[in-house]
Amino acid sequence: MHYEAIVIGVSSGGMNALKIISSALPGDFNIPIIIVQHLSAHSDSHWINLLNEKSHLDVKEADEKEKIEKGNIYIAPPNYHLLIEKDKTFSLTIDERVNFARPSIDVLFESAAEAYTNKLIGIVLTGSNSDGTKGIKRIKDCGGLAIIQDPKTADSEYMPKSAIAAIVPDYILSLEDIVALLIQINQQKR
């Protein structure tokens, strides 16, 4: 299967999880990754710079109307929802919070599922709310691949547990195994 994009949703405990994933992926990883991490509305982009320094890929904030390209890890800006258009560009909105969150994982996942259908991988990581559950369900419904962090290995087990309760995931794995799987999928692609 030729996957064209990976979306990741993560909340509390996410900084550490994202550090592990972004630093472990090789420079020739050629599936774009798009991430919603729940953050305070006023947080700056310092942490993105830190991730970028430790990554072989380019880690950056997603820009409005930006074309999604391989070799990049995109992060949703604080206080905006991030959506993906069918022409594989980003849209931002300031719509109401969804699941008390802006950016919301569900908003990203649902729009990504519409845009990439069965060529999408959705990943739900550590977090202490149920944002992402509806979204990962939509990804599955559209034929995409669902990977959930093993709740036993998550800082906060609530979010992965909530996702597992709603769908039959394709994989339930630790962060290290998720990285290994993604690398394997990427190699198959070439």
Binding site: L83, I84, E85, K86, S91, T93, D95, V107, E110, S111, E114, A115
Partner: peptide
């Protein structure tokens, strides 16, 4: 309008 938003 941006379609993803309108669609939602």
């Amino acid at each position: 309008y941006s379609q993803a938003h309108i669609r939602r």
